[in-house]
Design a protein around this nucleic acid. Structure first.
Lengths: 223, 223
DNA sequence: GTCTATATTCAGATAGAC
DNA sequence: GTCTATCTGAATATAGAC
């Protein structure tokens, strides 16, 4: 990109600031200052703060399309699942404010709201397929009836564990590690149903050692 | 209360509106209109919106004191646990915005921030004691090493499940049922470690039938 | 203790020059 | 495409009468 492409820079800067400080606590003046541009320039690229939010949400929808395309394939299912978990961790990290500040900024435009609603359903179905594939491959000894509730809990934990962790520590943690912690915690949803070797393999493959160490009581399980 | 006690009425009305619409989206004008009093009267009772927030947070701290006093006693441990879960459901329902809008309103005053931090630790320890008591009574067949991770997941699910549920349904659900759904979902954290009779007993004791029916795939487990 | 009227502040947005 | 200058509206808060 030889051209500075201010529009993209605005989106990236806004995304970072919204994640750091809450959507409602980032003023357009602050955003312009962060970018080193005039506030008026912001309104040339986005006709309102809301339009900027919608552009970010569109980027989120696009990111999830890639994540939702990850499926258990013919090869190593555990490797496929690791790729899904890595994508989910990144998704929660990069778009944290979208999950967190939803009650603040109200509804997305109709078209996007439908997409977001569809993402929940698709994510739920995707994880169910992975659980069944892991079961078929002998990594996860889960009764069929439990798959649904476990999928729900996994999604809740991956998405919201970072918020609890941040509050418990009071001080601000490294944002990247927060989403990893959600991935580690979600492994606890399975209990002993997930084979210890599979659990250890995922932790090593995803480089979750630091997150495991900070997860209350988790080290004992993985030892 | 023969006296109308406007101060208490303000707290109650604000708590309800904050829970419904997000702290930052409730104006003092709206709050005054909801109460049928003049906006100026608000400032007589609370010198700032922030002071009102602090008063509500103090009430939350007080509520948790009662909930944290619930312990597994000499009698039926399952009944004690049911009481704890009922108190947690009510806590999440009544003070929902405190959990949800935390990133918006920033830090509480130092004294209260310390209390809130202590509440997490105390809640975590409390639930651990309950899990061990349930195990001792033969209701929960959980390995000791898993208790820590399972406590963490239970707290995450009870607190945040309502937010996911609301988003998945898009339309606004009955707020009371949302927190019940978190209680139902947390039962899935245990998998088969919690004896089916104990699970069924808790569901019946806490009148969670409706929440079970709406929890994806949960009915199959409890059948 | 409650009201009405008014002040302050500032975020979000516009207009128009360059 | 970017800037400076300015406007608007709304939300929080104050002053002082009743």
């Amino acid at each position: 990109m030889a051209k500075p492409n201010t529009r993209q820079r605005i989106i990236e800067s806004a995304l970072r600031l919204f994640n750091e400080k809450h959507f409602g606590n980032v003023t357009t003046a602050e955003l312009a200052a962060d970018l080193g541009i005039a506030e008026g320039n912001l309104w040339y690229h986005f006709k309102s703060k809301r339009a900027l939010l919608d552009a970010i949400a569109a980027r989120y929808v696009e990111y999830t399309r890639g994540r939702l395309a990850i499926e258990p394939g013919a090869g190593d299912v555990l490797e496929d699942y690791a790729r899904l978990l890595a994508a989910l961790s990144e998704e929660v990290r990069a778009f944290r404010f979208i999950f967190r500040d939803r009650a603040d900024f109200g509804e997305f435009p109709a078209s996007m709201a439908a997409a977001v609603g569809g993402i929940y359903e698709a994510s739920w179905a995707q994880m169910g397929r992975f659980f069944r594939a892991l079961k078929a491959a002998g990594h996860l000894d889960i009764p069929e009836a439990w798959i649904g509730p476990l999928v729900t809990n996994s999604i809740i934990v991956i998405r919201f564990a970072p918020e609890l962790f941040r509050e418990m520590r009071l001080a601000e943690e490294d944002a990247g590690r927060l989403s990893d912690w959600g991935i580690v915690q979600h492994l606890a949803c399975f209990g002993d149903w997930l084979r210890p070797e599979a659990r250890r393999w995922l932790i090593e493959r995803l480089d979750l050692g630091a997150a495991v160490a900070s997860a209350a009581g988790f080290a004992a399980v993985t030892a």
